[in-house]
Amino acid sequence: MTAVILAAVVGALFALGTFLLLRRDLIRVVWGLAIISQAANVYLLAMGGLADASADSVPILAGHGEHVPQTADPLVQALVLTAIVIGFGMTAFALVLSYRVYEEHDTLDVSELGDRDR
């Protein structure tokens, strides 16, 4: 297992994503979201156990025979696949929303966009 290295990478990506999330530039906030969701995907996949890559470990069966080899966990792969697609939808929407915000307010500074009546 590569627990420590993996933990360090996920932790670092989370930290970088958070840092971007706290910026005032809306585009950077979207980047932060994207990085955090990438890190979460990596983490989720790692939860299924990281097997050494080989022909048997890929969760695609060789044929319609009875033998089912020990493969990498297909369940987490299905979960992550869903997560990737949802993440894509979210990023695309957030981006276009930022674009609209810029068109309406001529700024992407979230501190100016905040409740300005206050």
Partner: peptide, 12 residues
């Protein structure tokens, strides 16, 4: 980041 690091270590 530190929380994520610990979480990964603990949960795996």
């Amino acid at each position: 980041g530190a929380t994520a690091f610990i979480t990964v270590l603990v949960t795996t």
